[in-house]
Write a protein that binds this DNA or RNA. Structure first.
Lengths: 347, 347
DNA sequence: ATGAAAGCGCTAACAG
DNA sequence: CTGTTAGCGCTTTCAT
């Protein structure tokens, strides 16, 4: 067997040039005689050379790797909990879209995401260590809870990081978000336009800014139309939570004729419960969701939903991080996207 | 501002020892005087030292990183396609469980997964390059199609890799799998025990071994019971595919009284279609799924399903890869898990 | 435009 | 048990 994987040295020898020249060719630096460049390329081909990234990283002090961390607030860290967390996270179509957008930005730049879960203090420590060791150049953080301590830790440590969604308490980090308030208004106006006069809403967790803002926008638009005291129940952003919330809502207000659920999963839960009770959607109760994720189209009836451009947002999040990493951007920046109503069958 | 991040040298100076000693302490090598170890630990604390992984990787020739690649057979690579692929992949609860299991093994060893999608020839090239550059020590591959060329490429290149599920054509790589045939038998026997006498099945893609084997097991058990010519339609492992397949099945055999769907997503599609047609599950038609993923419990009615221990399988996959990487295992090995029937409401 | 040489921060013989 | 030393493979001045 020959020696290990070939190095720059080997290619240089094969091409009859210096290591420096090969390095220049590999990295596409100009200042290289086209003829030589050809020779070097041939030598690379012949030797089957692949640059050692550890060596490169050591000198350029970059990994071309970013941490993609899904972060909660848990304080436990046993395997079952993590399994369950991972399964739940990945079942929510929202994360798939985030991953898609992130990869869409990173891949053309041959950057790659390392997947991390931060559900406990240990996990968070691990994320910081990971970054401080230079195993990743920065972090993309998707928090599942408002009180997630990770963003603040990252900011304190001066590590490059960008958040998906505005954190509950201000943190000096860039973030992307959708205009949740505008989304709530869109939902309200659509229900009004349909002729609903007893609308209600199943909200997300109210300690999360997305939950609060969607509710606020919904109420504001209704108030403008003269409707106050709109009933609402918190649904926790899950399918089961949506159904339970609708159950509670129905118990107190059997006559609701329109429901805005703050995400599609809950909207589906709402539809299910309504149907179980013999109600028809949208004839008896119109339902509007939020996200326009895969479940919106798959739900029966297909959900009318406030679309959040998650892929674009995730892409932008990656772009911001890249700029922070290269030092092209230093100030925390917020990029806010406009929601859009997608009309289907449920309202 | 002080200098950059502290190095071994800085810690050594602070502790009044040599770099080697600090290195030994950091890496937990014995042979170190407990008193000195204390001093070094203190110095690490004081300086806020975090070992530079690129430097370490350069010499130990390991990254403690593995590629987790979801691999199809596509030949396109535009952004929208990838977005859609990522979204679809992550919507399938199956992958969440895989990720959970993989992370469960890796994390305690401070190893980490880099997420990659391989949907085109370019993507596959990228995966190989990634590994050859030493950016990851090996690959965990989850193929979505039988004809996925990636496993063979990996094997040819002599790169450490382990597959989830047996590849359609033999490849000299380790893999984990569930006994799909036994799973099919379990489903058949359950339907028979319930008194079904006109069973049918919605299969997975028949070019995938999981699809073929589940069908084979189902048929075999039915044949033993004297039932031959069991109707089947291919459903593509998706929700919509399951519904369509059931539709086709019903058109040809309106009297089926039991259906085995080769995964839960399709089983849910089957239930939906049945319900749309006014049929009741399980009273008119009993439905058995496969996987016992999150949707099984969430489906109405809750699905009786053949459980695949995905988390444990994924964990084992990571363990095998780790052994291959450290050279403790050289021969390709297959680890096959037993399925188990979980009885709920649908059958 | 090209080459020589000095590290990047760490580990691992090898002495002592 | 501890220190000295020689690289790991690459990039990057600095000369030429």
């Amino acid at each position: 067997m020959g020696r290990q994987t070939p190095t720059l040295e080997d290619v240089a020898r094969e091409a009859g040039v210096s290591r420096a020249t090969v390095s220049r060719v590999v990295n596409g630096v100009r200042n290289v005689d086209p003829a030589l460049r050809e020779i070097v390329h041939r030598a690379i081909e012949v030797t089957g050379y692949a640059p050692n990234r550890a060596a490169r990283s050591l000198v350029i002090r970059r990994t071309e790797t970013v941490a993609l961390v899904v972060s909660g607030v848990g304080d436990v860290a046993d395997d079952d909990t993590r399994d369950a967390f991972a399964a739940r996270v990945f079942t929510d179509p929202f994360f798939g879209r985030v991953v898609g957008g992130v990869v869409g930005f990173l891949r053309p730049r041959s950057m790659h995401p390392v997947l991390m879960f931060a559900e406990s203090a240990d996990d968070r420590r691990e994320v910081l260590t990971f970054l401080r060791q230079g195993r990743a150049d920065g972090a993309l953080v998707v928090s599942t809870h408002a009180d997630d301590p990770l963003p603040a830790l990252l900011a304190e440590a001066g590590l490059p990081a960008v958040l998906f969604a505005r954190p509950a308490r201000p943190v000096p980090l860039s973030h992307v978000d959708v205009d949740n308030r505008a989304g709530g208004r869109l939902a309200a106006r659509h229900l009004l336009a349909r002729g609903c006069c007893r609308p209600a809403t199943v909200t997300g967790p109210l300690d999360v800014s997305a939950g609060r803002e969607r509710l606020a926008g919904f109420r504001a638009a209704l108030t403008e139309a003269g409707l106050t005291d709109v009933p609402f129940v918190e649904g926790g952003f899950t399918l089961a939570g949506g159904a339970e919330a609708m159950d509670a809502l129905l118990a107190r207000h059997p006559d609701v004729d329109g429901v805005f659920a703050a995400n599609d999963l809950m909207a589906e839960g709402v539809c299910r419960l309504l149907q179980e009770r013999g109600g028809r959607v949208p004839d008896d109760v119109a339902v509007v969701g939020f996200d326009d994720s895969g479940v919106a189209a798959a739900c029966r009836p297909a959900l009318t939903s406030v679309r959040q451009p998650v892929e674009r947002m995730a892409q932008e999040m990656a772009r911001l991080l890249d700029e922070h990493i290269r030092g092209e951007r230093t100030e925390p920046t917020a990029v806010v996207f406009d929601p859009e109503l997608v009309t289907r069958d449920s309202a």
